[in-house]
Design a binder for these strands. Structure first.
Lengths: 247, 247
DNA sequence: TGTACATCAGTGAACGCGCGTTCACTGATGTAC
DNA sequence: TGTACATCAGTGAACGCGCGTTCACTGATGTAC
């Protein structure tokens, strides 16, 4: 790996620059965790770093750009966490992989409540997320979707319960499920797709309720209720873990 | 209904006072709907009403008190909406009543997205809701809980699916469900209680996802998906509508 | 009915605050010959 | 290796802004006799 002299030198400059930029983002994240989303201020970050507030503009064109960096970081962090949790499971333990994703989401959210609120809470007023947040934003969904796609292909998703206990899909729901199928769940039956969407919203619904205090005076043992909910939804979708193939 | 003279007169004063207070809240609500939660400002409200900003302090001790008034109003509005939707159903059409509550929540949320975000979104930074918000906050939950309690008492909730499709309750979940039972679901089986909690979080999870833009590029026909989700969850809980009793 | 007094909604100026952003600058670091 | 020049991170003062809240006041409305 050769480096041209000029390259080396400006890389040195670039390295310093990147390090400072990283310091800014880290400090901003720290303040986010303390104060919460909307209260993030360039001046406060600069102050804490012992820099002039105007120096921020060497690194970010505006406050919104710093916010975007934080959002991307948060999406990547939860994406990493969920992927890592999922990766520890046997590949053909589909139920286990699904549960691991769910627990990964909650565990990360409880560790980083303000970052969770930043990306899954109410939108920050006056801020519009640019397109480059889309990719990191979809990583958690991709992890869940991959489990379903692979489970379905492996025949590890059972037909729903007893026929009369599962409502038929309306025509509109059928059409819509076909769209969703085309977008990343090719080959997965449409009734399963609907259930996956339901389970997906339930997952983030519970985590949000927990973090935003909706369970206060209603449910106390949040670990127990979450675990049970995940188990229920896994069964609801119909994910099963096939017996180990002899190796 | 006699009124003493003094009473009449100060009531006149009080009426004017109440009317102005209502005007302030209305204008604040209007700005909330435009700007979003955290951006609410006493000065802006006063400006729009043609009053001095200091005049606000005759009606509200602080900005937070105005915010509290808005929160209470929002809880009461969604409570009214859900109760009204539920009241149009036949009393023993338990599945219909449950669905009506769910659709009531979503319909109100779509009409008043910022008010929904105010009460069900991420907490407003630096604001702590006082105790007197608790009662109005619980009205929607009470409506849902009443349907379940009555349905259960009427024998209109079926045992879950096929035995092996429904995970057993963990010991902790069993204990926790007993707590929840004691808090408003007396007589409802514990496995049903867990499912109700799951359905409850799913309901608000979907609505929040819809309002906060999480379905963009994933699901298009939100009406269809919501309807189907509600149908799925109604069946998931096991609510059935008994045949009409002959009248 | 008429007068003296009390209440209280609303005013407008002022306080101190923190914010995002701009701009002309300084001085260290890197580049070209 | 040494010198003249270019780049660019960081400075500090300043801009204009809107905010919540306080305070001494005015003047209309209600109250008591």
């Amino acid at each position: 790996m050769e480096t041209k002299k000029t390259g080396t030198v400006s890389n040195a400059r670039k390295r310093v620059r990147d390090a400072v930029r990283a310091d800014i983002v880290t400090e901003a994240r720290r303040q986010l965790a303390e104060t919460g989303a909307g209260a993030l201020s360039l001046r406060a970050v600069a102050r804490e770093l012992g820099m002039a507030s105007s120096a921020m503009y060497r690194y970010f064109k505006s406050r919104d750009e710093l916010l975007t960096a934080l959002i991307v970081e948060a999406y990547d962090a939860i994406g990493d966490a969920v992927e890592a949790a999922e990766a520890t499971c046997e590949r053909n333990d589909f139920a286990g992989r699904w549960r691991a994703c769910c627990h990964g989401v909650r565990a990360w959210a409880l560790e980083q409540p303000h970052e969770y609120a930043l990306i899954y809470g109410s939108p920050v007023p006056g801020y519009r997320a640019p397109d480059n947040t889309n990719l990191p934003a979809s990583r958690v969904t991709q992890a869940l979707v991959a489990v379903i796609r692979e489970a379905s292909a492996a025949g590890a998703i059972r037909a729903p319960f007893v026929p009369d206990r599962s409502p038929d899909l309306s025509e509109a729901a059928e059409t819509e499920a076909a769209h969703v199928e085309a977008r990343g769940l090719l080959g997965v039956p449409h009734d399963v797709i609907v259930r996956v969407v339901v389970a997906w919203t339930q997952l983030f619904g519970t985590v949000s309720f927990e973090l935003f205090g909706r369970f206060v005076d209603v449910v106390d043992d949040l670990d127990a209720m979450f675990d049970q909910g995940v188990a229920e939804m896994t069964a609801f979708i119909g994910i099963v873990t096939p017996p180990m193939s002899p190796t």
